[in-house]
Nucleic acid binder design. Structure first.
Length: 282
DNA sequence: TTCCAGGGTCCTA
DNA sequence: TAGGACCATGGA
């Protein structure tokens, strides 16, 4: 793995020799919902941290507070060896062309609670609406930052009235958001999920209201670095049907992905998901 | 007007 | 244990 370097330039950090990074793909591929593009910069909030990110030749410009630098380096997953993962996935005939089509795909390490609530909201929903609901929740229950709002704390959502969550557009997911926030605010050690067997981690997360195996897999993949997780949604079902030429149930799809993609299943999933969701756009 | 979206819960057989 | 009805919402 080639090592990147960081140098400060005024209020910004220039991260050089960073390959496998494409902000347009990373922030628009449906793994996070709080980044928008403005004047060539992707800007957004994670938890209570604000940042702007811009692609440059052989690297990125990261604009954030000095105290938040370590947070964003982890968030952007800069220490993971994507070169190696892509080399391994290139052996797969289906994924190989997708790697070329989507250079710089990367999996983020998002805030656990924010990711959990976001994907509870994602159930039977589309990305545009998910973004809107989260924005309204943040404006109502988050803290005002210099730019935007922080994501609400577990305690603030645990104490929220269901009718107020409904006005944010959450629909039938409103009680799930409140009950899960109450469970989290009573104490939950999410770090243990990083090491335990995938199935055990899924079972632990599905104890939260509004969390099934698919949402659990998204949380494991997009906030806890579990790159072996393979979320099965409507798009992935369609892809797997095309690949296997038969209708498979979700458990069979997960087992199939585990065998075919192994520890890189999550990255393969994101290539398949993003390609199939956007292939008719151009 | 109908379909669909990064699904989950609950009930029934 | 598996399968299906039902659940808000708004854009296409």
């Amino acid at each position: 793995m080639r090592e990147y370097s960081i140098r400060r330039c005024g209020d910004e950090y220039i991260i050089d020799n960073l390959h496998d990074f494409n902000a347009d793909i990373i922030f628009d591929c449906g793994q996070c919902f709080r980044f928008t593009k403005k004047d060539k910069y992707w800007q957004g909030v994670s938890g209570h941290h604000f940042a702007k990110v811009k692609d440059i030749e052989n690297g990125i410009i990261l604009s954030c507070k000095e105290a938040d630098l370590r947070y964003w380096i982890n968030y952007l997953d800069l220490s993971y060896d994507y070169e190696k993962a892509k080399r391994e996935l290139s052996l797969d005939s289906v994924i190989k062309p997708l790697i070329s089509l989507m250079p710089g795909m990367r999996l983020l390490n998002q805030d656990f609670f924010e990711c959990l609530i976001s994907f509870i909201i994602s159930s039977n929903n589309n990305i545009l609406r998910i973004r809107g609901i989260i924005d309204r929740l943040c404006a109502r229950y988050g803290k005002k930052l210099d730019i935007g709002y922080s994501f609400p704390t577990p305690n603030s959502l645990a104490l929220a009235a269901e009718t107020d969550i409904l006005t944010c557009g959450a629909g039938y997911r409103a009680p799930y958001i409140i009950k899960t926030s109450q469970m989290i605010s009573n104490g939950f050690d999410y770090n243990s999920l990083k090491q335990m067997p995938l199935k055990q981690a899924q079972e632990t997360l599905t104890k939260f209201m509004g969390v099934g195996v698919k949402v659990a897999d998204c949380v494991l993949l997009f906030s806890l670095g579990r790159k072996d997780a393979f979320p099965v949604d409507t798009w992935i079902r369609k892809v797997m049907h095309d690949i296997c030429h038969e209708r498979l149930n979700d458990n069979t799809i997960r087992e199939y992905a585990k065998k075919r993609f192994g520890k890189n299943a999550g990255l393969a999933n994101q290539y398949l998901f993003h390609y199939n969701r956007t292939k008719d756009d151009s």
